[in-house]
């Protein structure tokens, strides 16, 4: 299973950004109950076992706030897309 980590401190908030909530094909992101030191509410990721490893969240996040790591053996669960349609 890929591991998805939200780097909460650099996130600029689900309320005004929220791009991760839009680009995740499995809709795993939602607003968390936390607030970072800049006053933004970072996302939480629920049901990570449903993650396809597509890396959309990492690629689209404008503030380097999401890291997707591949499976422990270095493989990805799915073939990554060549294009965004």
């Amino acid at each position: 299973m890929p591991t998805v980590t939200v780097l909460e401190q650099s996130c600029k908030g689900v309320e005004d950004c929220g791009i991760c909530t839009f680009v995740c094909p499995a809709s795993l992101f939602s607003a968390s109950e936390k607030m970072n030191t800049a006053g933004y509410v970072p996302p939480q990721i629920l049901n990570q076992e449903k993650c396809t490893g597509c890396r959309n969240c990492m690629i689209y996040c404008p503030d380097f706030s999401i890291v997707v790591q591949k499976n422990a053996d270095g493989s990805n669960s799915v073939e990554e897309k060549e294009e965004d349609e």
Partner: peptide, 18 residues
Amino acid sequence: VKKTTNCPGCGNGIIVQA
């Protein structure tokens, strides 16, 4: 440089990574 200069949700950050 700890932060990008962009507002929340700005497209510039997507371009940075690209």
